[in-house]
Protein backbone atom coordinates (compact mmCIF):
# COMPACT_ATOMS: atom_id res chain seq x y z
CA UNK A 1 0.00 0.00 0.00
CA UNK A 2 1.50 3.28 -1.12
CA UNK A 3 -0.05 5.16 1.78
CA UNK A 4 1.72 2.88 4.22
CA UNK A 5 5.01 3.20 2.36
CA UNK A 6 4.81 6.99 2.69
CA UNK A 7 3.91 6.71 6.37
CA UNK A 8 6.85 4.35 6.93
CA UNK A 9 9.21 6.77 5.24
CA UNK A 10 7.90 9.76 7.19
CA UNK A 11 8.03 7.82 10.46
CA UNK A 12 11.60 6.80 9.76
CA UNK A 13 12.44 10.47 9.25
CA UNK A 14 11.09 11.25 12.72
CA UNK A 15 7.71 12.61 11.68
CA UNK A 16 5.43 12.58 14.72
CA UNK A 17 2.24 12.98 12.69
CA UNK A 18 3.08 9.90 10.66
CA UNK A 19 3.31 7.90 13.87
CA UNK A 20 -0.07 9.26 14.99
CA UNK A 21 -1.60 8.32 11.64
CA UNK A 22 -0.15 4.81 11.84
CA UNK A 23 -1.57 4.49 15.33
CA UNK A 24 -5.02 5.73 14.32
CA UNK A 25 -5.07 3.41 11.36
CA UNK A 26 -3.92 0.23 13.08
CA UNK A 27 -4.72 0.52 16.79
CA UNK A 28 -8.22 -0.94 16.47
CA UNK A 29 -7.26 -3.85 14.17
CA UNK A 30 -4.45 -4.69 16.60
CA UNK A 31 -6.79 -4.42 19.59
CA UNK A 32 -9.20 -6.76 17.82
CA UNK A 33 -6.42 -9.24 17.16
CA UNK A 34 -5.13 -9.02 20.73
CA UNK A 35 -8.65 -9.43 22.14
CA UNK A 36 -9.20 -12.45 19.92
CA UNK A 37 -5.99 -14.03 21.15
CA UNK A 38 -6.25 -13.07 24.82
CA UNK A 39 -9.97 -12.58 25.52
CA UNK A 40 -8.96 -10.06 28.16
CA UNK A 41 -9.59 -6.40 27.45
CA UNK A 42 -7.00 -4.97 29.84
CA UNK A 43 -4.28 -7.38 28.76
CA UNK A 44 -5.11 -6.63 25.10
CA UNK A 45 -4.82 -2.89 25.73
CA UNK A 46 -1.46 -3.43 27.45
CA UNK A 47 -0.14 -5.56 24.62
CA UNK A 48 -1.17 -3.09 21.92
CA UNK A 49 0.19 -0.20 23.95
CA UNK A 50 3.52 -2.02 24.40
CA UNK A 51 3.72 -2.79 20.68
CA UNK A 52 3.09 0.80 19.63
CA UNK A 53 5.40 2.18 22.32
CA UNK A 54 8.23 -0.09 21.15
CA UNK A 55 7.40 0.86 17.57
CA UNK A 56 7.52 4.57 18.46
CA UNK A 57 10.96 4.11 20.01
CA UNK A 58 12.28 2.27 16.98
CA UNK A 59 12.13 5.23 14.57
CA UNK A 60 15.86 5.81 14.58
CA UNK A 61 16.78 2.33 13.44
CA UNK A 62 13.57 1.59 11.59
CA UNK A 63 14.18 -0.33 8.36
CA UNK A 64 11.05 -2.22 7.39
CA UNK A 65 10.80 -3.62 3.90
CA UNK A 66 7.54 -5.52 4.26
CA UNK A 67 3.98 -4.57 5.07
CA UNK A 68 3.38 -2.35 8.07
CA UNK A 69 0.26 -4.28 9.02
CA UNK A 70 2.08 -7.61 8.91
CA UNK A 71 4.88 -6.12 11.01
CA UNK A 72 2.48 -4.87 13.69
CA UNK A 73 0.47 -8.09 13.57
CA UNK A 74 3.61 -10.15 14.13
CA UNK A 75 4.67 -7.83 16.94
CA UNK A 76 1.29 -8.28 18.66
CA UNK A 77 1.47 -12.07 18.32
CA UNK A 78 5.04 -12.17 19.66
CA UNK A 79 4.16 -9.87 22.55
CA UNK A 80 1.23 -12.12 23.46
CA UNK A 81 3.48 -15.16 23.39
CA UNK A 82 5.86 -13.32 25.72
CA UNK A 83 2.89 -12.54 27.93
CA UNK A 84 2.00 -16.23 28.24
CA UNK A 85 5.60 -17.27 28.66
CA UNK A 86 6.16 -14.79 31.45
CA UNK A 87 3.15 -16.15 33.22
CA UNK A 88 4.41 -19.69 32.79
CA UNK A 89 7.90 -18.86 33.92
CA UNK A 90 7.00 -16.98 37.00
CA UNK A 91 4.84 -19.27 39.04
CA UNK A 92 6.04 -17.44 42.13
CA UNK A 93 5.74 -13.97 40.65
CA UNK A 94 4.55 -11.19 42.87
CA UNK A 95 1.00 -11.03 41.67
CA UNK A 96 -1.39 -12.40 44.22
CA UNK A 97 -1.13 -10.30 47.30
CA UNK A 98 -0.38 -6.97 45.70
CA UNK A 99 -3.13 -4.47 46.32
CA UNK A 100 -4.89 -3.85 43.05
CA UNK A 101 -6.03 -0.30 42.54
CA UNK A 102 -9.71 -0.20 41.82
CA UNK A 103 -10.65 2.31 39.22
CA UNK A 104 -13.86 3.19 37.57
CA UNK A 105 -13.62 3.89 33.90
CA UNK A 106 -16.18 5.61 31.78
CA UNK A 107 -17.48 3.97 28.59
CA UNK A 108 -15.20 6.07 26.40
CA UNK A 109 -12.21 4.72 28.34
CA UNK A 110 -13.07 1.10 27.59
CA UNK A 111 -13.10 -1.07 24.50
CA UNK A 112 -16.20 -0.73 22.36
CA UNK A 113 -17.74 -3.83 20.81
CA UNK A 114 -21.01 -5.38 19.73
CA UNK A 115 -22.74 -8.44 21.14
CA UNK A 116 -21.80 -10.34 17.99
CA UNK A 117 -18.16 -9.52 18.53
CA UNK A 118 -18.31 -10.72 22.11
CA UNK A 119 -20.02 -13.97 21.13
CA UNK A 120 -17.50 -14.65 18.39
CA UNK A 121 -14.63 -13.84 20.70
CA UNK A 122 -15.89 -16.22 23.33
CA UNK A 123 -16.19 -18.96 20.75
CA UNK A 124 -12.63 -18.24 19.64
CA UNK A 125 -11.45 -18.45 23.25
CA UNK A 126 -12.58 -22.11 23.32
CA UNK A 127 -10.13 -23.04 20.55
CA UNK A 128 -6.60 -24.31 21.23
CA UNK A 129 -4.29 -21.32 21.07
CA UNK A 130 -2.51 -22.45 17.86
CA UNK A 131 -5.80 -22.81 16.01
CA UNK A 132 -7.10 -19.52 17.37
CA UNK A 133 -3.91 -17.82 16.21
CA UNK A 134 -4.09 -19.40 12.74
CA UNK A 135 -7.73 -18.35 12.25
CA UNK A 136 -7.15 -14.78 13.41
CA UNK A 137 -3.94 -14.29 11.47
CA UNK A 138 -5.60 -15.54 8.33
CA UNK A 139 -8.96 -13.81 8.63
CA UNK A 140 -8.11 -10.61 10.47
CA UNK A 141 -4.41 -10.29 9.71
CA UNK A 142 -4.86 -11.29 6.05
CA UNK A 143 -1.69 -13.31 6.30
CA UNK A 144 -0.81 -16.00 3.81
CA UNK A 145 -0.51 -19.56 5.12
CA UNK A 146 3.17 -19.42 4.30
CA UNK A 147 3.57 -16.43 6.61
CA UNK A 148 1.49 -18.04 9.35
CA UNK A 149 3.60 -21.20 9.06
CA UNK A 150 6.77 -19.16 9.42
CA UNK A 151 5.46 -17.29 12.42
CA UNK A 152 4.32 -20.48 14.14
CA UNK A 153 7.44 -22.42 13.15
CA UNK A 154 5.43 -25.14 11.38
CA UNK A 155 4.83 -26.40 7.85
CA UNK A 156 2.32 -24.73 5.54
CA UNK A 157 0.14 -27.85 5.64
CA UNK A 158 0.02 -27.76 9.42
CA UNK A 159 -0.92 -24.08 9.35
CA UNK A 160 -3.69 -24.86 6.87
CA UNK A 161 -4.84 -27.75 9.07
CA UNK A 162 -4.94 -25.56 12.17
CA UNK A 163 -6.99 -22.96 10.32
CA UNK A 164 -9.49 -25.51 8.98
CA UNK A 165 -9.89 -27.35 12.28
CA UNK A 166 -10.28 -24.01 14.00
CA UNK A 167 -13.08 -22.93 11.68
CA UNK A 168 -14.82 -26.31 12.02
CA UNK A 169 -14.77 -26.10 15.81
CA UNK A 170 -16.00 -22.52 15.70
CA UNK A 171 -18.85 -23.52 13.45
CA UNK A 172 -19.81 -26.29 15.79
CA UNK A 173 -19.60 -24.14 18.91
CA UNK A 174 -21.53 -21.31 17.31
CA UNK A 175 -24.08 -23.98 16.38
CA UNK A 176 -25.70 -22.36 13.39
CA UNK A 177 -25.72 -18.88 14.83
CA UNK A 178 -23.70 -17.58 11.92
CA UNK A 179 -25.99 -15.98 9.40
CA UNK A 180 -25.34 -15.46 5.76
Amino acid sequence: MLEDEILKWQFKCGNRDALAQIYRKYADPMLTLAMGLLNDAHAAEDVVQDVFTAFARSANGFALRGSLKAYLTTAVVNRIRDHWRRRLRRPGALTDDLPIATETRGPDEELIFTEDALRLNEALAQLPSEQREAVLLRVKGKMRFKEIAKLQGISVNTALGRYRYGLQKLRSSLNGEVHK
Binding site: D28, L31, E109, E110, L167
Partner: peptide, 25 residues
Protein backbone atom coordinates in the same frame (compact mmCIF):
# COMPACT_ATOMS: atom_id res chain seq x y z
CA UNK B 1 -16.67 -22.65 7.21
CA UNK B 2 -16.41 -19.67 4.89
CA UNK B 3 -19.46 -18.17 6.58
CA UNK B 4 -17.71 -18.46 9.91
CA UNK B 5 -14.61 -16.79 8.46
CA UNK B 6 -16.74 -14.01 7.00
CA UNK B 7 -18.50 -13.48 10.32
CA UNK B 8 -15.15 -13.10 12.04
CA UNK B 9 -13.94 -10.77 9.36
CA UNK B 10 -17.02 -8.53 9.47
CA UNK B 11 -18.29 -8.76 13.01
CA UNK B 12 -15.31 -9.37 15.22
CA UNK B 13 -14.35 -5.76 15.84
CA UNK B 14 -13.06 -4.13 19.00
CA UNK B 15 -12.30 -0.44 19.13
CA UNK B 16 -10.84 1.80 21.77
CA UNK B 17 -13.21 4.35 23.28
CA UNK B 18 -12.37 7.95 22.44
CA UNK B 19 -10.60 8.78 25.69
CA UNK B 20 -8.81 5.44 25.84
CA UNK B 21 -7.60 5.97 22.28
CA UNK B 22 -6.31 9.46 22.99
CA UNK B 23 -4.62 8.37 26.23
CA UNK B 24 -2.88 5.48 24.49
CA UNK B 25 -1.85 7.70 21.59
Amino acid sequence: DDQVAKAIQDKLQFAAGARLRERML
